[in-house]
């Protein structure tokens, strides 16, 4: 009886401090809602970044994440592009491949020190040589504009290709590494007069839902461009597997690293990809030669013959 009276008193009659308590609880609820919203946003970001990090770069390639800071904007935005927050100061150069966890997004069209413009594969000016994953049929995939399907060009009438097949980069243009997924075949048609099939494909990413992307760098290119290994590049210490392997278990060989043909001249970055073999070690010198200080070449693509000419030129000049 006493308990019931006490409960009745405290529940229905004694309201001292209830208003202040109510205000305090409402304030706490607002703060908790705000915190919950921020945490949900963080969780979403973590999930996206985790997917980005789960993407294993091909051998001799490293990746660097970038955030999309702007999509098409303004009257001069005539191409299908977006802007990312990394530029030449972080080693980005024109034609750097840009990928998402789902597949190839595009390539860098132009750069500034702190930002870069990425040309999407959906733009009509984008053409990428691809190969179908199952039947190994080659072609060139071309964008057709926003919210339109891509077109696979130059596939001969008799070439085998199936609907639903994934198209991967062939690496022939030496911009994208081989084996990155680009698009999925949606329809295959035939035209009576054309020598080629009419093939449509959809990109594997949603352009308007992208928030973060990854750029791929050849390990040597990034080292020589920045002078030092870029800090955010994740270390690939485990055996690297290519993203896509052809059926039959045959693993495609990684393309040889482009750039200077004298890998010994480039100081290997600690922990950056596979170690570059030094041909100097394989050919033992008959006599010990005092080691000269080696310099990293200033031009990435400078041929060794050119470098040799440049070294010889001052000698001739001094002799005249």
């Amino acid at each position: 009886m006493h308990g019931q009276v006490s409960s009745f008193w405290s529940r229905y009659l004694y309201f001292v401090g209830i208003r202040q308590q109510n205000d305090q609880l409402l304030s706490d609820l607002e703060a908790a809602k705000k915190e919950l919203s921020e945490l949900r946003e963080s969780a979403s970001e973590v999930e996206r970044l985790r997917q980005l990090l789960s993407m294993t770069p091909p051998a001799d390639w490293t990746r660097q994440g970038a955030r999309i800071i702007s999509h098409r904007l303004g009257p001069n935005a005539a191409l299908e592009t977006f802007l990312i927050d990394k530029g030449s100061a972080r080693g980005v150069s024109v034609n750097t491949p840009v990928v998402s966890p789902d597949g190839v997004v595009g390539r860098v069209l132009r750069i500034s020190p702190t930002a870069a413009t990425v040309l999407l594969i959906t733009d009509p000016n984008s053409r990428i040589p691809v190969v179908s994953q199952k039947n190994r049929t080659q072609g060139i995939i071309k964008g057709e504009g926003p919210s339109k399907e891509l077109t696979l060009l130059y596939v001969a009438q008799g070439a085998p290709i199936e609907e639903g097949e994934i198209l991967v980069t062939s690496g022939l243009e030496e911009i994208f590494p081989k084996g990155l997924p680009v698009a999925r075949v949606t329809s295959i048609g035939r035209s009576g007069s054309s020598l080629f099939q009419l093939i449509a494909a959809v990109p594997l990413f949603a352009p308007l839902q992208l928030e973060e992307v990854a750029m791929l760098f050849k390990a040597t290119a990034l080292t020589s461009a920045t002078g030092a290994p870029a800090t955010p590049v994740p270390v690939v210490s485990q055996p690297v597997t290519p993203l896509v392997t052809p059926p039959g278990g045959a693993v495609p060989l990684a393309k040889p690293v482009k750039g200077p043909k004298t890998p010994a001249a480039i100081p290997p970055a600690p922990g950056q990809g596979a170690p570059v073999p030094a041909p100097v070690i394989q050919a033992p010198a008959p006599q010990p030669v005092p080691a000269k200080p080696v310099e990293a070449p200033k031009k990435r693509d400078a041929a060794p013959a050119d470098a040799e000419k440049k070294r010889r030129k001052p000698a001739r000049t001094t002799g005249q």
């Binding site: 098409r72 904007l73 303004g74 001069n76 935005a77």
Partner: peptide, 17 residues
């Protein structure tokens, strides 16, 4: 600067505009 930076045309399109 905003138009030249965010656009995809070569530099000069904004000035012409």
């Amino acid at each position: 600067f905003i138009h030249e930076g965010t656009g995809s045309m070569p530099f000069g399109a904004g000035i012409l505009w």
